[in-house]
């Protein structure tokens, strides 16, 4: 039984809840770009939304759109990935505590500070009592969550799931990460960030939700496999083994979509991959910016490609559109310690 993406929705730095940003992405000229917000009022009653931070609102909107599209009113499991969790509320509580002392602190900010707020708020909203978990492992938080979900499908304990990658980045946290070399001082055109490599990249944000089921009908793509690996000594070999375990090899892969972000050190790892000659490659981080769960946006972009059967110029690393795409391998690494592999294929006709 395969696992299929029945619905997907993204709130990102591109137009929210729309594929428009994949084909005609907006270019930015700033090292920090925040999400373009959807109209929250259309989805959330003010009384319910009043205590929710942005990341929770975005996650709820993205997840409800994805579930609705897939026709899954109640998923069997909700598994989320978030690298940093609810930063905005964590900072509000921390800032007040450090600056004003340990009194008169507001409980709401503490309650919403925990990483599992997102998964649990989605569950509360749906009244979903199923399996619920949150993965918080740096740049592979989303893939880790997705892999666990695939295990649950594999052993037959679930037949549908909501999986997502959710991260927000506040201006103070952006500055902190800037101090340790994450970002460029200047960005001329975010869409050209990979073609103009330098030290650092630009920061994005995003909430990307996928409704998964065993129903191939009308699905965006099939998830053939997901794997994470720690400190793997040979990225290319590991990717080959991943394909091998799925009964495939490199020639079965139409597009390799990498986590290149224009940062010299980050991208060196991908440049050092020994891919087959003439392998088509694609990149998505120029569209969504770098954040801990950016690979969720990558999987969204790949799913859009497979649904359309083409790789648009906006994603192709050489800028050339290609038709007839049937299988995409997503590769990502985080600081050469955490590695991830996702294989998607088209559901065919």
């Amino acid at each position: 039984m395969g696992v299929y993406i029945g619905g997907v929705a993204a709130v990102s730095i591109q137009e929210p809840l729309s594929e428009e940003g994949i084909f005609r992405p907006v270019a930015y000229s700033s090292p920090q770009v925040r999400c373009i917000e959807p109209e929250f009022r259309k989805f959330l009653e003010p009384m319910v939304a009043r205590r929710m931070s942005k990341i929770v609102k975005r996650a709820i909107v993205a997840s409800s759109v994805a579930l609705e599209e897939a026709g899954i009113p109640m998923p069997d499991a909700i598994v989320s990935g978030t690298g940093l969790g609810c930063v905005e509320d964590t900072e509000k509580f921390l800032d007040a505590m450090v600056r004003n002392g340990e009194h008169c602190l507001q409980p709401t900010f503490f309650i919403q500070s925990t990483h599992n707020t997102i998964s649990s708020q989605i569950a509360i909203r749906l009244g979903c009592h199923g399996y619920n978990n949150t993965h918080v492992h740096r740049g592979i938080s989303f893939e880790s969550a997705l892999q666990e979900t695939m295990l649950l499908f594999g052993k037959g304990s679930i037949h549908s799931a909501l999986v997502g990658g959710y991260d927000e980045l506040t201006p103070p946290y952006f500055r902190l990460l800037g101090r340790i070399g994450y970002w460029r001082e200047e960005v001329k055109n975010s869409l050209h960030i990979v073609q103009e490599p330098a030290a650092g990249t630009f920061a994005g944000e995003g909430s990307v939700a996928f409704a998964l089921s065993e129903n191939a009908q009308g699905a965006w793509a099939q998830i053939e496999g997901v794997s994470i690996s720690y400190a793997c000594p040979d990225f290319t070999r590991e990717a080959g083994l991943f394909l091998h375990r799925l009964g495939l090899n490199w020639k079965d892969v139409d597009v390799v979509m990498t986590g290149k972000n224009g940062d010299l050190e980050n991208d060196r790892v991908y440049r050092n991959l020994s891919l087959p000659a003439g392998q088509t490659t694609a990149v998505y981080k120029p569209l969504c910016g770098e954040f801990f769960t950016a690979p969720a946006y990558g999987m969204y972009a790949a799913a859009v490609c497979l649904k359309q059967g083409m790789l648009p110029a906006s994603l192709a690393e050489d800028g050339k559109e290609i038709k007839g795409i049937r299988r995409i391998l997503l590769l990502n690494h985080w600081q050469e310690k955490d590695y991830s592999f996702i294989l998607l294929s088209s559901c065919g006709d």
């Binding site: 009384m47 205590r51 009194h103 008169c104 602190l105 507001q106 409980p107 709401t108 309650i111």
Partner: peptide, 17 residues
């Protein structure tokens, strides 16, 4: 107004502050 237990805690903070 439909407030809940977390609101009650917030009101307690308001009274002190």
């Amino acid at each position: 107004l439909g407030l809940d237990s977390i609101d009650a805690l917030e009101l307690i903070v308001l009274m002190e502050k």
